[in-house]
Simulated scan of single mutants.
Amino acid sequence: MANGFIRLARALALTDGESGAADFIRSGYGPYAPELAVLEKAITGTGDIDNPGNAALQGVAVDFMGLVRRRAVFGLIRDALGGALRSMRANAPVLVQTSGATGAFVGEALVIPISDAGFKAERYPAHKAAGMLVVTEELARVLGDDADAKLNRDLGDAVAEVVNDKFCSFDAPTSVAPGGIFYGATEVTATGNLAGDAAALIGAFQGDLARSAFILNPQTAATLNALGLDQMGAAGGYLMGVAAVTTTSVPVDFLGLVDVSRVGLIDEGFGLEVARHASISVANAQGPTSLINLWANNLRALRALWFVNWVVLDPAAVLWTQDSGAVGAALKAVGA
């Protein structure tokens, strides 16, 4: 149901517990509102609201989940290629190749040399990516369907942004968060111009280009269009015949190339948490971080959780380069 996820969050934020939230939904949206199924499971102890295994919750959150997944970089890649990253289950054993097999020319009737391909079994959990939205109680009470849609987008954008920033990073994996796909990836020497950088990545790439995508900043993509690559634009397209997606989670002058068939994705679904009495840390651009008590300030915090993880299964699947000043030089060359 459209905006059901945020409507459920508002009901929980404005009332005391699941029973009060069920009364709120029933009085405002009728006895057959789908959000009631989620709350009834919570009341009877058969389905926690923060549990991605709660099928009723996933049904209510279907529009929210679609929004977030479409905004995620790997969702953009799925749409561009018509295929997603390799699907994996949380904590299921995955066979990861650590070294490849080798071949040799062999003379007639001679022993064929063999080598062992190296493998190891790994298990990967689903990590918790969270996006939070803080609203006043008064605002939460007067919101209608139009405002629900806006809050749905804002909260979805927050979750997608934190996932994209981590996915496109060079961060090492930790016990609470995945590593960036560019962590440990091979850097290709920059050529001094954007088209040359893309060609260099393609030339050095060992993955399957038919299942691969460039990742770049929208400004970089728009600059390539200005240079005459008409299939590229700020929203992505094709770069030298290879699918390309754009995100502000990578810097300008950066180009990454990823074979997504060699990247595993764990997507266990979404959960919901609501707070009325907690204290939250708020970053203030004008000064130091401050601690705000929700109850004292008549605020409500709505938090969406995405249980997700990813892993690069083959180091050769990812290459990158960064050509400092290449975008500025290109724009100057075309007179922009």
Rank of each mutant, 00 (worst) to 15 (best):
A222F: 10
F170W: 12
G207E: 03
Y183T: 04
T220H: 09
P173V: 01
V135G: 05
T136H: 00
E138F: 11
T136K: 00
A109W: 05
P218M: 01
A109Q: 13
A190D: 10
A158R: 12
L216S: 08
H127S: 11
L201G: 05
T223W: 09
T186D: 10
A160M: 09
A117H: 01
A204P: 03
E108T: 14
D145M: 08
L143N: 08
D171Y: 05
T191Q: 14
V142I: 15
S169C: 04
Y183W: 14
K150H: 07
I112Y: 13
A177F: 01
G131P: 02
D146Y: 06
P218V: 01
V159T: 08
E108V: 15
G144T: 05
A190V: 02
V111Y: 11
Q219C: 01
A117R: 07
V188F: 11
C168L: 15
P218N: 06
T174S: 15
F182T: 08
V176W: 02
A177S: 06
V142D: 09
E108P: 04
D154I: 13
R153H: 11
G107Q: 07
N193G: 12
V142H: 10
H127N: 13
A210V: 14
Y183E: 09
L155S: 00
R153T: 15
I112D: 11
T223K: 09
V188M: 13
S212T: 03
K120S: 14
G107E: 08
R153K: 10
F170L: 12
E108Y: 11
A109R: 12
S169N: 05
A172G: 01
Q206R: 10
G103D: 03
V134P: 08
F205V: 02
G156L: 07
G180V: 03
R153F: 09
A117C: 05
V106T: 11
S212D: 00
A199N: 10
I202F: 07
V135L: 15
F170S: 09
K128V: 15
D165K: 14
V135F: 10
A104Q: 07
R211C: 05
S175W: 01
D171W: 04
A104R: 06
G179W: 00
E161L: 13
R153D: 15
A200P: 01
F214N: 04
L224R: 08
P218I: 01
S115T: 15
L209H: 03
Q219N: 13
Q219H: 13
A185I: 06
G118H: 00
T174R: 00
V163F: 08
A172P: 05
V111W: 04
G184W: 04
P173N: 00
T186C: 02
Y124A: 02
E137T: 15
A195P: 02
L133G: 01
I114G: 15
P125V: 14
A158P: 00
F167S: 11
Q206P: 04
E138G: 08
D197E: 12
N217G: 03
R211I: 02
A213C: 11
E138C: 03
A126K: 02
R211W: 02
L216E: 05
A200K: 03
F119I: 12
G118V: 04
Q219Y: 11
A198P: 03
E137P: 00
G144P: 07
G203P: 02
Y183I: 00
N193Q: 13
L133C: 04
G203W: 07
P218K: 09
G179V: 02
A160E: 08
S212W: 04
